[in-house]
Amino acid sequence: MDLNILWYLVPSVVMFAAGVYGFVTRKNMIAMLVSLELILNSADLNFVIFNRFLFPDSMEGMVFSLFAIAIAAAETAVAIAIIINIYRAIGSTDIVETNKMKH
């Protein structure tokens, strides 16, 4: 079986779509963060795929995805810290309950 670039790109696009869908529909903040991770990972996957199939001579895409993974980890750490604060304040991680401002 010939594994061309599509075999890798389609899962990446599916991950992206699932991430956006989850981000929009989920009410739990942790679940939203998981969806965000899916989007970030699909972007990393894209970089690796394009590097491997289109520009096999250079390593730039691979290096970029390594940095992107590290940055995503930092983002998640900050977000989790804030979610813990919210949980302490209102006893819930439901995004619908954080609507006290508006006015």
């Binding site: 903040m29 939203m32 963060l33 965000l36 970030l40 983002e75 998640t76 900050v78 977000a79 804030i82 979610i83 604060n85 919210i86 304040a89 995004i95 954080t98 006290k100 401002m101």
Partner: peptide, 12 residues
């Protein structure tokens, strides 16, 4: 806290 969660989620 509410502002921070809104900021971090949109930023990510």
């Amino acid at each position: 806290h509410e502002a921070a969660i809104k900021y971090i989620i949109t930023a990510v």
